[in-house]
Amino acid sequence: MGVQRLAGDRTLVTVTGHLDLHTAHCLSEALEPLLDAEHLVLVDLSAVTFLDSTGLTSLISAYRATRNTDARLALIAPSPPVQQMLRLTGVDRVLSIYPSPDAVGH
């Protein structure tokens, strides 16, 4: 899990490998301090090879947290397995998804 400050109020969180029962807490811990500020939090899922319900719950919980703050959450370039899970669960209709960090408006 990597966290990188970008220009302005943007932060890029890069997730690799499995996002599951064993790793989802790492994502939640990385996102928590970012979601209480006026930030645009970009979660790069391009290198995620597996996403289970626990990982999905982390993403949904982060989205819900932004509804109570001025933070915004955007998913970046979900890998095919992640896209499939997002589509099957309907989460792709709720969370904002972009092909790259540059494609996300301020």
Rank of each mutant, 00 (worst) to 15 (best):
D20L: 07
S79E: 04
G90L: 10
T49A: 13
R10V: 12
G90N: 11
L51P: 13
S58I: 04
M85T: 14
V94L: 14
S61V: 04
V15R: 10
V94N: 02
A62H: 02
L51C: 12
T14G: 08
I60W: 03
Q83L: 11
M85Q: 08
L86A: 05
D102S: 14
A71P: 00
E32R: 15
R10C: 06
E32Y: 06
S28I: 02
G55V: 08
P99F: 07
Y98N: 04
A47T: 11
D52T: 01
T49F: 03
L27T: 04
L19V: 13
L56G: 10
T14H: 12
L75T: 09
Y63N: 02
T23L: 06
L40N: 02
C26W: 02
G8N: 13
R67K: 14
V48L: 05
T57C: 02
L56P: 13
H106I: 00
T89G: 03
S53P: 08
A62Y: 07
G55Y: 10
T89H: 04
T14Q: 15
L86Q: 09
L88K: 08
R87D: 12
V94H: 01
S96P: 02
D70W: 01
H106C: 05
T89P: 10
H39D: 09
S58P: 06
A47P: 00
V43F: 07
C26A: 12
N68A: 14
F50I: 07
T49I: 11
A74D: 00
L45D: 10
L51A: 03
H25D: 14
L73T: 03
H39G: 03
P99S: 12
N68L: 10
T16I: 05
A103W: 09
D70I: 01
A7P: 14
L59V: 00
G55K: 05
V43I: 15
E32M: 06
C26I: 13
H22G: 14
L31T: 01
A37Q: 15
T89Q: 02
S61T: 12
L35S: 08
L35Y: 07
L40D: 08
L86K: 10
S96H: 04
T57A: 14
L88A: 13
L6W: 09
V15E: 09
N68I: 00
L27V: 10
H18C: 08
V104Q: 04
T14P: 06
H22S: 15
R93T: 15
R93C: 01
V91K: 07
E38Y: 13
A47N: 11
M85P: 04
A24H: 06
G55R: 05
L51K: 05
S46H: 12
E29A: 15
P99Q: 07
Y63E: 00
E38P: 14
P101R: 03
T23Q: 06
V13P: 14
